[in-house]
Amino acid sequence: MAEINELSSFEIDALKETANIGTGNASIALSALLNQKVLLTLPETNIINAEEVSKKISGQNQSLVGIYTKAKEGLDGNILLLFPITDALNLIENVRKGGSTEKKDSLSGEDLIIMKKLGAVLCSAYLTSLAKFFEQRIIFQQPNVISVLGDSIADFMISQIGDKEKVLLITVGFNTESKKVNGDFVLLFTLSSLNPLLQKLKQKMGMN
């Protein structure tokens, strides 16, 4: 397969739209879990070399909690949901719907399980919509909960991806109606793994 280094404007727009579809579905799933509206910001989309990712998503000079997963079949990339710790705790409290009212400042073992399940629900919502759209099987690994600081976020996103590999980086902010849960979806896929999906899209639209 020829290496992808450039995308046409149609391909870029198509990828942005599929990103919107995915994050839209994930936000619907989150909204259902929290029983409140989830508002999304406009996605920021970049096609860059993997080594440039840290310039785009670093500057997070605070300690953050993330739910991290890696797509392992059908796509090559990583998904991360990021929250400040207080928002992560609010998220869990919302999901529990009237659990303990004790003020907490760390994630218990049970909280970690809830976050991993949340991660599985949201990633599944995101990737399932992509899989349906592209008629492609996509599987991801069991999500993990991580705590990251500063440029460590970029390290997770480009783990196991070569520095010079071209990647599609999408960041979408979200917050709940109550403003108590604010976070970011950060999605990164290698262009080489997106190529077969783009070919299918073109076939669907009679462009091949």
Binding site: S63, V65, I85, D105, S106, L107, L112, S147, L149
Partner: peptide, 11 residues
């Protein structure tokens, strides 16, 4: 490196 990372998970 570092205790602050542990503080996310433990009291």
């Amino acid at each position: 490196d570092s205790l602050s990372t542990l503080m996310v998970y433990e009291d």
